[in-house]
Design a protein around this nucleic acid. Sequence first.
DNA 1: GTATCATTGTGTTGCTACTACACATTGTAT
DNA 2: ATACAATGTGTAGTAGCAACACAATGATAC
Lengths: 252, 252
Amino acid sequence: MESYEKRLRDFLLRGDKIFLPHISIDCVTFGFHDNQLKVLLLKWKDSGPWCLPGGFVKRDESLDDSAKRVLNERTGLENIYLRQFQAFGDPDRMRSKQSFDLIGAATSWVMDRFVTVGYWALVEFSKVTPRPDWLSEDCKWFDIHRVPKLIYDHNSIIIKALEALRISLNDHPVGYNLLPEKFTMPDLQKLYETILDTSLDRRNFQKKMLALDVLERLSERKTGGAHKAPFLYRFDKKKYERAVKQGIKTGF
Amino acid sequence: MESYEKRLRDFLLRGDKIFLPHISIDCVTFGFHDNQLKVLLLKWKDSGPWCLPGGFVKRDESLDDSAKRVLNERTGLENIYLRQFQAFGDPDRMRSKQSFDLIGAATSWVMDRFVTVGYWALVEFSKVTPRPDWLSEDCKWFDIHRVPKLIYDHNSIIIKALEALRISLNDHPVGYNLLPEKFTMPDLQKLYETILDTSLDRRNFQKKMLALDVLERLSERKTGGAHKAPFLYRFDKKKYERAVKQGIKTGF
DNA sequence: GTATCATTGTGTTGCTACTACACATTGTAT
DNA sequence: ATACAATGTGTAGTAGCAACACAATGATAC
């Protein structure tokens, strides 16, 4: 097993044989837990601020595939629902550059200007075990309202990703990748309210969701709460995927 | 004035000192003429198929600025309304590579893989004088329904741009950059019908457009037609820009 | 055991926006 | 003058949504 220093040095000096220079991808990964919207963040070794999990594009790999690869490495999940939403290419977006105190780092391909392609993803919080990569010392969830100052323009990338997610609520159902298999209508409503950062009328929300024709009501109810037991629902996968593909016409 | 060959050779061999390698932008420029939606296309010298006007990103230039620069060079227009809509990065999207029969071309930076960022733009047809650049022999408008087979994945980029334009009709008014200053309601309707490729009810369309509160009806009417003279309208620039910025809620 | 109470299930009403039409008006061509 | 084709304006019916009311229920407090 080669040492971290050797591996880093090789990456800085010769990574551009494997990866395309000047192009990166960054993933804004949303999860839902404790009625809060979470974002997965990463912290590089020997560097201060947190950042979005991201990576480079292999020379024979598509943008979508590199985003999937990055997310799979950070979460362990396969078949993640993700969507490209914007490319970020301001020439000074990396003004606050990292400094790798190693020979060759200053002239490395990673220190040059990068255009990054932003993706957002929805994952089921409970199924994720955040894991840092060899370059990072930590990887964990942050409440969307408590994201610290990140490197580069990553804070504004998160803001844009959230806008894109909210817009997509208008033509795509959400929840399949964000909630456990069985959930209650209040659970689903809280998810929407958290993403949209508003409150919604309970009764109208239920009608709208049922009208989407993607939910299946189970005979079970969720017990253990302090009040009337709500029905459990689950997504009808076929109908859900049809709705995601075709798009639906609703509006929040 | 240096010769074309010398200039091309210098571009192929040393262009990557000025431009970022592996990243390009492509512009899908829409115009409206004779009740048809037009797209501006370009033909390189010594090469068969047509392509989208595009270009490379200068090392100190933003993506948006490079798109604006490219469009300004092809159309002569300033302040073009354009929007980034998607990055295209399949590793084999440039499978049908051009061959420049020049020394050094085969190993030039332009022959390597590129990720391109797609922009769509709306311009006023009558104000545009399409002009080829030094690399091209022709630049002209094509009917959207008569676009020939283009290089690379440029046909699918146009399709995606048109989809993005249609979606944007649902939250942004269209016409300011696509119609002459004064126009009739039937003109505006034909524009929408052409973009959406459907027919719309004349009376409902008028009501919807007036409800947007971006139009100003002039006292003049358009004469010369074979029938009843329709009113002329123009956009109220302030209200129009507010509507573009805020977004409107309509649906087609 | 029983009362309490927050929460859930299921309506109803009223408004707005959109769709589908009808009819009168007008400028040119015959 | 008349015909015609296109324009200006209005109306009825409908679907969808927002606002709201009331009964049912399951744990908790006593």
